[in-house]
Design a binder for these strands. Structure first.
Lengths: 387, 387
DNA sequence: TTTGTTAGTTAACCTGCCTAACACAAAAAC
DNA sequence: GTTTTTGTGTTAGGCAGGTTAACTAACAAA
């Protein structure tokens, strides 16, 4: 009943072998005794598991580690048979690509700056993705093993097969880009990706629930509750840019108005309209406004404070709905420590106690998150049912 | 290595025995072949599992079922050794008690109407809970087996051992009520309980995620996402009464103001203030308002419509944050079909597509939900790790 | 009474882990 | 340079928890 894996499909592995493989993927190179102790596996079981995993080159020995006494221990890592993944962040200003093994050793990375900021995903972005993926694949070496999964982070809502694909613009990314056949495709919203990255590698490491709030050209949120990413029925969970606004007695709320009020365009517009002539030239964009505020400009500081307070009110709304306990601020404005105190004050004044932190990953968060999701999908392919 | 279970602690059961027991708890009496087919267990394994479960009386045979041909099949159900649970809904107007076996056979039930509507939980409620629980326990028969779990649904935030218990008032229920020693206690917010009940037995059966919105004296929400109840770091997930309000440019939002505006007190106040003198006497409470609206009174209908629209705006806020895809309306006003179209229209206009339904369980939802949670806790006690 | 069909038990086996005991390698002790 | 100490890896055997195969038991219809 031996299942010969000619291509990259699931080989029938024993439970302990799966656990060992997962451990090597998650925690990087380890010696046999380290793995055995961590997973509470006996040495014979470790021997059997390693033997199982070495046959399809899922793992490979990379050396021996000598302790103070005794025989040296063999060290293993994920092997070439496990293959690799390509992670792509198709953003509005850049296309970022990471090619990595399942244990996140970087095989190649590319960054393309788009000629102009693309407000929505379009054919230009699609062409750029096609070119970058082709370039990454052309550089492939035999030691990379098979390509298991291609992950794509998109600045749109993303719905699965059952959903209403038309209403999202997610298909536009394929207008000029044909994904390689036979490779599993993983699509995810870019803010959700950033949240995943913060959860595993960034400011939310160790938290079982938190909200990642992106504050930039658009505003959005990625929600992780009970250790799992919340996507929503229409892929719209966390679409706080779509909150209706204003919300007051007698007022007529307009859907999506929160984004128009809180996005950088409207924000910088209000700043410039309100800028006193004697204070010199008004800032041209939020980056300039931030640097003016950093150097102590009182008018700039006042506007940043005000915006932080507005963001805090939105954060408070989210806190009242899901009570995540932790909020990580990201995106162009959210990465700045200047907004942090204002958001923190407003959110805690208006709702339940919540910790607020800045991103630790910055612009790399999205591509790291889609990389993580691609690796998880590859693990499901290889050993089934990632725990 | 045989573990003799003298009291009610975990007996070391085999995996298949646990699965059989769980199946009997969840789906009620079944024959051996039914269970075996459903769980893909061979007949020898079924024999072993049943034998294991019969020794501690976790299951018992209750008869034989005859098919069209062949030998009749033995039918089993959960036995007295599995014990029972007590579920208590300590509400603001009633205290409801259900005593049931783990497979939800009702052993006893009690309803006490409180002398006056208690706006918050207090010693009066605590005394009532003590009396009702004592009465239920006094009626216990030997066939009920041991009391495994006491579940309490409370109209407060509920936090676990790690949390800030002081801020929640949840301890007030124990001011005059001492829970029976040695019995596992399960506390949960009453709206969350109602959500759990709708998820398993009511309007949200089969949905993997939805929001239960309670509209009555207070407003609140219970969130189920990815099949699990979302409680939040401070037990405040779904506390939409605590949303700050108003939320508009230049306005100063006040925390908790949403409840003051949307609760029945303020609502009926606005109705009475606005009531035209020629329309006759104004309604005294929302129940009267609803019945006037039902019989076609135009002024009553107008106010109900307006309120539905306000509720719809809050629902839209929740939909934009978590996109549950389904919202179940409950509570005194939420149970009425009159509000449904207005909420549905406003929510879908202001946010993403969302199905809106009325509760199917009404005032029983909370006690049924805490019963379910108590049973789940009892299962964890008996077989560990409820899947 | 025979026959066909379904229910349950017994026997034998398989998988996936374990412990016990032994063989092996490398530093430390002599 | 041998021997000891200590940790690494393998071999042998056992056990838990499932399987299939084959038999016995029970019951309705012919």
């Amino acid at each position: 009943m031996e299942q010969i894996e000619t291509d990259g499909t699931t080989a029938a592995l024993t439970g302990s072998a799966r656990a060992v493989f997962r451990r090597l993927v998650e925690d990087g190179p380890s010696t046999r005794p380290q793995i055995g102790n961590a997973l509470h596996l006996s040495r014979p079981t470790m021997s059997a598991a390693i033997a199982e995993l070495e046959r399809p080159r899922y793992v490979e020995m990379i050396g021996a580690v000598q302790g103070s006494f005794g025989r040296s221990a063999a060290q293993y890592r994920v092997g070439s048979g496990a293959g690799h993944v390509i992670a792509v962040d198709a953003g509005s200003t850049h296309v970022r690509v990471r090619v990595s093994t399942l244990d996140r050793r970087l095989l190649a990375s590319r960054i393309l700056r788009l000629p102009a900021s693309q407000i929505a995903i379009n054919e230009e972005v699609s062409r750029a993705v096609a070119a970058e993926v082709a370039a990454a694949r052309a550089a492939a070496l035999p030691g990379w093993g098979p390509l298991r999964v291609l992950g794509l982070a998109l600045p749109t809502r993303v719905v699965g097969l059952g959903g209403d694909v038309i209403s999202t613009r997610q298909e536009v990314v394929f207008s000029a880009f044909t994904p390689p056949p036979g490779v599993t495709l993983v699509l995810e919203n870019n803010v959700n990706c950033a949240a995943v990255a913060e959860q595993h590698y960034g400011a939310a490491r160790g938290a079982s629930g938190f909200a990642y709030v992106q504050i930039g050209l658009k505003i959005g949120m990625g929600l992780v509750l009970g250790d799992q990413l919340i996507r929503g029925r229409n892929g719209a969970a966390g679409e706080i840019g779509h909150l209706s606004f204003p919300f007051a007695p007698g007022a007529s709320p307009v859907p999506g108005e929160a984004e128009h009020y809180l996005g950088t365009e409207a924000f910088i517009g209000r700043v410039r309209a309100d800028w006193p002539e004697i204070a010199g030239p008004s800032p041209i964009d939020t980056a300039e406004l931030l640097s003016m505020a950093e150097s102590g400009n009182a008018d700039a500081l006042r506007h940043v404070e005000r915006h932080a307070s507005d963001i805090g009110a939105v954060v408070a709304t989210c806190v009242s709905v899901v009570d995540p306990g932790l909020v990580v601020l990201g995106g162009g404005l959210g990465a700045s420590p200047l907004l942090l105190p204002g958001v923190r004050e407003a959110a805690n004044r208006l709702s339940y106690p919540v910790e607020i932190r800045n991103t630790l990953l910055g612009t790399d968060a999205t591509v790291m998150g889609i990389e993580r999701l691609a690796i998880e999908a590859a693990m499901t392919l290889l050993i089934g049912e990632e725990a």
